[in-house]
């Protein structure tokens, strides 16, 4: 067999490494013992770190989207469709995307830097020699936390964005909250909600795994920690869009079928 070029070999080895890491995190979802205390702590940290930022951006997104769509709907005389248009956009795309991007920036870098600095200062080695499995203590607790929390954060983002939209609609034509809710919810299907949750789970898992992988294998001192955090953000943002596309294909298929 011909020798593979060195760079090619490196990429393949890295890919095998990543696959092993992903497999291991998946197996730890079902393999006891669970680090229950660590998992709860991480869930809390995930929510706490991102709640404000997600709320703030979702509210603005709701306001902006509503105001921007109103003129074109009005020109068709279809202004009353505004709540259902906004709610579909929020639930299907905006809510999950905003949440995931914020979390990629906020949590991805945080997880990666945290584990990276533990790696380069030998804290992970110290755990390993003191009889702890650092993988389940550090990695799987974080991956489980992001995977579980993202759907919750997405629902929260959806609600805030819709609230932002209601405030906008109300300030224009004074329509009541109950009417807005009726129209907004009326246009959302179970498939919308289901696919949004699935997407959120995949986003959360991707952010957790990428943050942990880059941090856990950080090398090269403090410089390496910075690099790890940076690549965590870039890689998870890219993968969010890829997941978005793949799920979109599935959902479109289901809608037609």
């Amino acid at each position: 067999m011909a020798e593979l070029p060195v760079s090619m070999k490196k990429i393949l080895l890295q890919a095998a490494d990543v696959a092993k890491f992903v497999g291991k995190t998946l197996s730890y979802f079902v393999k006891p013992p669970f680090e229950v205390k660590e998992i709860l702590k991480q869930c809390f940290a995930v929510g706490y770190r991102s709640l404000f930022l997600i709320g703030f951006t979702s509210f603005i997104a709701g306001v902006v989207f509503t105001r921007q769509s109103r003129p074109s709907l009005a020109s068709f005389g279809a202004e009353s469709w505004l709540p259902s248009l906004v709610s579909q956009a929020v639930v299907r795309a905006l809510g999950p995307l905003i949440t995931a991007l914020i979390c990629a920036g906020k949590l991805g870098s945080n997880i990666s830097a945290e584990l990276g600095s533990m790696r380069v200062s030998e804290q992970i080695d110290a755990m390993e020699v003191s009889g702890v499995r650092p993988f389940s203590y550090l990695v799987s607790s974080r991956v489980i936390a992001t995977t579980v929390m993202l759907p919750i954060l997405v629902i929260y983002a959806d609600l805030i964005a819709l609230f932002g939209s209601y405030v906008t609609v109300n300030s224009i034509n004074g329509s009541s909250l109950s009417l807005f809710i009726n129209e907004a919810l009326g246009s959302i299907t179970y498939l919308d909600i289901f696919s949004s949750i699935i997407k959120a789970i995949l986003f959360g898992y991707a952010i957790g795994v990428i943050g942990c992988y880059t941090g856990y294998y950080a090398t090269g001192g403090t410089m390496g920690v910075g690099k790890a955090a940076n690549s965590a953000v870039v890689t998870s943002m890219l993968s969010i869009f890829i997941i978005e596309l793949i799920v979109l294909q599935f959902v479109t298929f289901l809608r037609q079928g």
Binding site: M118, S121, E122, Q123, D125, A126, M127
Partner: peptide, 8 residues
């Protein structure tokens, strides 16, 4: 450990 590796 060289850097003492205390858990921050």
């Amino acid at each position: 450990f060289q850097g003492s590796a205390l858990y921050d």
